[in-house]
Amino acid sequence: MYTQGLDGQPAEAAVVDESALEQRFLARVDAEEKIEPKDWMPARYRNTLIRQISQHAHSEIVGMLPEGNWITRAPTLKRKAILIAKVQDEGGHGAYLYSAAETLGVSRDQLIEQLLSGKAKYSSIFNYPTPTWADVGAIGWLVDGAAIMNQIPLCRCSYGPYARAMVRVCREESFHQRQGYDLMLQLARGTPDQKRMAQEALNRWWWPALMMFGPSDANSTHTGDSQRWKIKRFSNDELRQKFVDFTVPQAKFLDLTVPDPQLHWDESKQQYSFGPIDWSEFDQVLKGNGPCNTERLAARRNAHAAGAWVREAASAYAAKRRPSAAGVAA
């Protein structure tokens, strides 16, 4: 994705007439053309994308932790193989997305540093714990389900490398959601204890999953520009509503109860009406006071530090084998 070609771009752009370039850029976006790495783009568009894509990448990487927690304790070999494949996919999604962010002129090392220093944000959902095996099912069904709802419109976003990464991610994400539902189905049809376990996992993940769509439209700071630039196609509330409408019947099929006493079908609107979201909880988790914020970041830092010798050895080996530069690099 030709990252190096971008080095001189912001400086060059300052010389020419910005407003004419911006008009042309907006016309291209309006015409549903894709913006590619070497094309001129407004600095705010570039920065918005770097922030969004890198947060998305960090979320995939941190997202490996809550489920990775269960790999060694998966109840059957089949479930263990499925879970390993899913967690590996999440790592892959992180890699696709880091590559897409890098096309905007930020380096992989900078991005990793931002995550490990705690400066960068990732999805708050991964700061919740997974105390039982049923949580693995609830994550696949609800968390990946909500992620798909957010990600499908991103396949059409105006920035080419992000859109292409999302096509690949969405293709793989569908397996994640279905394996989660399949796991929940097996528990819900199992012993009373297993069914109770499934219900408790639904209770834990329902509200955090609804919060994944972000603040309500009235309080969303990034929506305006992102919609103008066709990065974001639907508002947070629109996507959240769609998720509820899709998911409630799936919960009914499991014979589980959505933990919202106010939830009911609104005949006039032809959609589910649901109770108010506790945004104070969302804010607390966002600020770093969620149940697992410290643990997640510590796990990433440990993994990075513990892998340092492998990276160094690989670099040293590569330098030794590089034919012409062998003497220079040593």
């Binding site: 994705m1 990252t3 590559s99 990276r311 690989a314 080996y317 590569a318 590089r322």
Partner: peptide, 11 residues
């Protein structure tokens, strides 16, 4: 299909 970082061609 995309890009990646690696220490050398075989990696």
């Amino acid at each position: 299909v995309g890009s990646l970082h690696a220490a050398d061609p075989s990696m």
